[in-house]
C-alpha cells in the first residue's frame, strides 16, 4: 500500500504528512496529530462523537479518509477557542450541566457552533432538529438543550 501526500490546515496550522489511503481523518487527527478531543464511539457515522469542521461545515471524521480532506481546512474542539479559554458554548455546557462523561461533548459543541453560526437564535424545535445526529448516553439531552439556550444568550441572543 503506497502512501499519499496530504496537506491539511488543522486549527489554523498547516500540516503535511504522508498517509495510507485507508487512514480515516479521525485517526489522522488522533494518532498523527495527537488531537484527541475528536472521539470515536461508533466508527460508522451514526453517533456524531467524531464531528469536526471541514471547510466550515461539520463532518464525521470517521467517515472521511484523510486523503479526501487534502487541501482543506479542519477545525476540531481544540481549535474552536484560543488556548484554554472556554467559548460561550463550552461555558453554557458547564453552567447547565450539559455533559456527564464528556465523551460525546466535543461532537455536540462543534455541531452547536455550526448551528448557531447559521441560526443565532434557534427555537427549541430547531435545536432538537439540529442535534438529531448526535448521540449522548448520559444526559437524556434535557440539559444539552438548556445549554444551547444558555449559549444563545451568552452569545448575545439573535444579535
Amino acid at each position: 500500500m503506497s502512501d499519499h501526500a496530504v496537506t491539511i490546515r488543522v486549527n489554523g496550522v498547516e500540516r503535511s504528512d504522508s498517509v495510507p489511503a485507508r487512514l480515516t481523518l479521525a485517526d489522522f487527527l488522533r494518532e498523527r496529530l495527537d488531537l484527541t478531543a475528536t472521539h470515536l464511539a461508533c466508527e460508522h457515522g451514526v453517533c456524531g462523537a467524531c464531528t469536526v469542521m471541514v471547510d466550515g461545515e461539520t463532518a464525521r471524521a470517521c467517515l472521511l479518509l484523510t486523503v479526501q480532506a487534502d487541501g482543506s481546512e479542519v477545525t476540531t474542539l481544540e481549535g474552536l477557542t484560543e488556548g484554554d479559554e472556554l467559548g460561550p458554548i463550552e461555558q453554557a455546557f458547564w453552567a447547565k450541566h450539559g455533559m456527564q462523561c464528556g465523551f460525546c461533548t466535543p461532537g455536540f459543541v462543534l455541531t452547536i457552533a455550526e448551528m448557531l453560526d447559521e441560526n443565532p437564535n434557534p427555537t427549541r424545535e430547531e435545536i432538537i432538529e439540529g442535534l438529531g445526529g448526535n448521540l449522548c448516553r448520559c444526559t437524556g439531552y434535557v440539559k444539552i438543550v438548556e445549554a444551547v439556550e444558555e449559549a444563545v444568550s451568552l452569545r448575545g441572543g439573535g444579535a
Partner: peptide, 21 residues
C-alpha cells in the same frame, strides 16, 4: 454548583483510554 470536571473536558483535555499513547 458547576462541576470541577468540566473545564478540562471542554478544553479537549480529557484523557480517555484510547487517548493514551
Amino acid at each position: 454548583i458547576r462541576r470541577k470536571e468540566d473545564p478540562r473536558l471542554l478544553q479537549g483535555n480529557g484523557q480517555y483510554l484510547s487517548d493514551i499513547k
